[in-house]
Design a protein around this nucleic acid. Structure first.
Length: 179
DNA sequence: GGGAGGATGGAT
DNA sequence: TCCATCCTCCCA
């Protein structure tokens, strides 16, 4: 399988990265077990101007990972119980990220992290083999076709940013929750 | 120091 | 439709 996606892949706009991650693999190693899942749903959080992006409210302890290098993991707790897995995009000091919402057999960002054992322990670490979590592209497989919708659960971001079509879903998996 | 609210998911 | 559950951030 192809080698892990690195900084050059993630050091682009969050929309572009979110789109390109559809069809790529998320790989997780726990002990001797390797879990490889094809990514089917993502969302882009595009920067400090994006009112749905945590970084829109400034550089804080929580958002610090988003200011790090492309490919950094941003893992935070939502609703007091669900870990959300994000990967940071854009160059250092530009806070943007992509939320991994679903993979082939696991729908929902909270279920994804729970199933793969992803917690805040991985926050601010690089997506890399040495950390037991990384991304790969497989050029031998056909890329999945993609549709775009608005993002889930960001009504608070207001009439401009809430409807932005920054959610990407594989067509073959578009039953993955209505929007 | 206090309070509101959230990038969800499971039960009712 | 309800609510579990707790961290973050804003305000005083």
């Amino acid at each position: 399988m192809a080698r892990p996606l690195g900084e050059s892949f993630f050091e682009r706009g969050a929309e572009t990265v979110a789109r390109d991650l559809i069809g790529c693999y998320l790989v997780r190693k726990r002990g001797q077990k390797l879990f490889k899942h094809r990514i089917t749903e993502t969302e882009a959080y595009t920067g400090p101007h994006d009112l749905a992006c945590h970084a829109a409210r400034g550089r804080t302890m929580r958002t610090e990972p988003m200011f790090g290098p492309a490919g950094t993991l941003y893992v935070y707790l939502v609703y007091g119980m669900h870990w959300m897995l994000n990967v940071v995009t854009e160059p250092v000091n530009y806070p943007a990220a992509v939320l991994i919402r679903s993979v082939d057999t696991i729908t929902g960002p909270g279920r994804l992290t729970k199933t793969l054992g992803i917690t805040g322990a991985l926050n601010n670490r690089a997506a890399a083999v040495r950390n037991g979590i990384w991304f790969v592209k497989d050029d031998h497989l056909d890329p999945l076709q993609v549709v775009r919708t608005k993002r889930i659960g960001v009504e608070y971001a207001g009439p401009i940013w809430s409807p932005k079509p920054y959610r990407f879903i594989s067509i073959a998996h578009r039953h993955t929750r209505p929007s």
